[in-house]
Design a protein around this nucleic acid. Sequence first.
DNA 1: ATGTAC
Length: 479
Amino acid sequence: MVAADKLKKISEDVWEIPTDYKPGMNVPGHIFLSDRLIEGLESGAIDQTANVATLPGIQRYSMAMPDVHIGYGFPIGGVAAFDTETGVISPGGVGFDINCGVRLLRSELMADDVKPHKVDLINALYEAVPSGLGSESKFRVNDAQLAEVFRTGARWAVENGYGVKADLEHCEENGEMKGADPAKVSKKARDRGRPQLGTLGSGNHFLEIQKVEKIYDEAVAKAFGLKEGQVTVMIHCGSRGAGHQICTDYVKTMEQASRKYGIKLYDRQLACAPLSSPEAKDYFAAMAAGANYAWANRQIISHWVREAFSKYYKRDVRMDLVYDVAHNVAKFEEHEVDGVKKALCVHRKGATRAFAPGRSEVPVAYRDVGQPVIIPGSMGSASYVLAGTQRGMELTFGSTCHGAGRVMSRSAALKDIRGNEVKRQLLERGIVVKAPKDAAIAEEAPEVYKEIDEVIAVVDGLGISKKVARLVPIAVAKG
DNA sequence: ATGTAC
């Protein structure tokens, strides 16, 4: 394929974009792909990875995970870390769905016992959690409450009866990113966010009842509380209209800031500001608020999932949170660069933090085995639980992939694929899908995504995170 | 991803 010809294979599954690929690159690009996956690599994704390398203060490499595809400015699947003194922050490096992410609940139930009830259970979940484009929540928060949600995230939800304290210990950032400032969130973003807290959204967002099909690492799986045959529930959603509006607002701010600070942009969508500037500080405070909204959202949804299971079984069904990860966020972290520890602003857009054993950010319960990494597959395919590694700290600033990665656009999928047909095929495989309309199923059909097993094989093979468990769907509720 | 528009 033509796209791959521009890249230099420097080791197994590591492809370099040399700095002479295009003018202005400060560092090379690194794309992690198998020989098979590289055949489907979009040349636009290479260009975007190279464009990110032109931004001021970028450290080591502009990186793309094996699920990379074209996004707004930065590629989805992109990881870029910036020096806090010379670097920048960019809304395009976080994405429109701020803290789109995923969490995994482990249940005490076994798949063989749950399967006969899957239709009733998925209907119950579908009823319990509003979903779809523009969907509104079953409850309302006022302005003061919304400000607390922006400031304290999942903690607001737990303190108001949605979940237990232990949930917070098992969330990235404890579900509460520091530095969030509701005053930096526009009225428009607040107005969009207020009625949507406690909703799933649409697109690739879903609620899924799963079975732990295979364990790859018994010791780590045990630490994560996972065993074969067990039922888990995965929740994939983000910050809804609130995060989207925050991004929209700050893209405009950053376009002005880029001019003001004389940053040469090779693509307008890379709009950014120096990390030391007031514009950067405002964006970070608003982005953190958006991230907290998403954590509160997943926390509230978790509570409704627990309620639905307990109501169905007419007893208290225990469902502990394994972990909750962000897929779209920028964070300040300490990393070693050329043997020196440095404070960096790490942008992960369609990428997951995957911290090694020993890092203080990893919850005490998992500190010896590494951070749990939750990777959702496409509808009808497997999902994975991995663990962060030291190799990942060295190669990717402690990052790994976030999912399968699209290969077909939504519009193309709608044209070529019939949702009810996909639904029928999944049912033949024993997987029940519940969605507001068939078109939503067509857009997310398994064939519009890369093979998740192949993507996971790359990150596991490179050692930037390691496989712990494979989960397969029993029933899916989609937005 | 997203009230598929400034």
